[in-house]
Design a protein around this nucleic acid. Structure first.
Lengths: 227, 227
DNA sequence: GTACAAACGGACGATCTCGTCCGTTTCGCA
DNA sequence: TGCGAAACGGACGAGATCGTCCGTTTGTAC
């Protein structure tokens, strides 16, 4: 609040070179993670970014922090996809698009699936508030799609997590096989339709949406895009 | 053929202590892989087995060899499941049981899913002959189930690989959540039914059964059980 | 019991990764 | 231009894993 010795005019409080390096690191991390997985040595990322390891660690103290920041964009799209799904007048279409969008992300950005799996069941998620909103939104989406008679009545919100995690696993196992991924998504969607219900399903998982990749500060509050 | 200096009376040409240690190592490996994943340090396995690392490496020169040997039993069950499925008079039931059996294996023996994924798309599979037989058998199974009107006509043999790999991914991500696993299997099976077909599926994957876990020497030729 | 070869096991050097320390450079402001 | 703080980057020690080497033990045959 009171005057700091050296004020920075830039918007994020970082010096110009620091901001530049941060960006370089993120670009490098995306490439390295795509090529070698999210367990790739930190030094590899640093070298690729053209910075020293110390700089890397200064910006991202842990690998986890780097992974999250690297896939923040994907994470944000996930959050918006949920909001968009909820906004769709056709609840089934909204539901379908949500699944397709997230799966498309998973197959597009190699490394993201591993990050998704790594972060998903993790309890160290940033804001409980965001999680709650995501769970609530998803619940609403499911209820609406069921009320419309499109989504089978015994579908549980946790089934979406099941679908996403299994799709992640497939993409991790076969990073190049887009056809396999699309095939799985198509099958899953068909089995979720109300008219595909044949007999009772086994007990649902107790898995919640804890850790569903969402931006740490909400998906819409602060987008650094236009204004 | 002609007299060796020190002949061993035992059946597998190993000395008694060597055979004992080999067994101990396999037991230890199963436990360690279940607990720490198939990337667990070799020394951990050796310690748990009560042998030196050198002994471990003597029996299994590479981690891959150890992993394969450790899950040879599961692998064999996979092979038999395919044979059994083919033998079932009801082709759909055979098909269903095949998927359920393999998935049950995957969720039972922790570590097996990872091994499954690690070995599956790998080209270093033992006998091309076995692979070919598996592919042929699976093709037959699929054709029959389709002819019976139970399995949807656009199902491809590669879709079974898709199902198994995605299920593996799920079990890897949530090793404790059996409900999630069962749920996925139920959904997949329903979506494979002929009466679940709604609209066209995307292009099938070109993935073959290369590496489908099968015993190296065929599943039935030599079972050291009774005679 | 003895001899020989097979099998054992611990120690060891090599390699890799992590994360920090600290001297040097660069930026922002006056 | 000059100053102070922020940021940089390479080097480095700690810790972990790998796979081999070699002296010792143990099993088998005679």
């Amino acid at each position: 609040m009171v005057g700091n010795s050296s004020r920075i005019t830039e918007r994020d409080g970082l010096r110009a070179d620091a901001r530049r390096n941060r960006e370089r690191i993120l670009v490098a991390a995306r490439a390295v993670f795509a090529e070698h997985g999210i367990d790739a040595p930190m030094a590899t990322v640093a070298r690729r970014a053209g910075v020293g390891v110390a700089t890397l660690y200064r910006h991202f103290p842990t690998r986890d922090a780097l992974v999250r920041a690297t896939f923040a964009e994907q994470t944000e799209i996930c959050g918006r996809a949920l909001t968009d799904a909820l906004a769709d007048p056709d609840p089934w279409r909204g539901f379908r698009r949500l699944l397709e969008t997230v799966c498309e992300l998973q197959r597009q950005e190699r490394g993201f699936p591993a990050a998704f799996v790594a972060v998903f069941p993790d309890s160290a998620v940033d804001h409980a508030r965001v999680r709650e909103r995501a769970e609530r939104d998803l619940m609403t989406l499911v209820r609406r799609a069921q009320a419309a008679g499109a989504l089978r009545a015994d579908f549980q919100p946790s089934d979406l997590a099941v679908a996403l995690l299994s799709h992640c696993g497939l993409v991790n196992a076969l990073p190049h096989d887009r056809a396999a991924s699309r095939r799985l998504v198509a099958y899953l969607l068909q089995s979720f339709r109300a008219d595909a219900a044949h007999g009772a399903l086994p007990e649902p998982s107790t898995l919640s949406l804890r850790g569903f990749p969402l931006p740490a500060d909400g998906s819409r509050e602060q987008r650094p895009s236009g204004a």
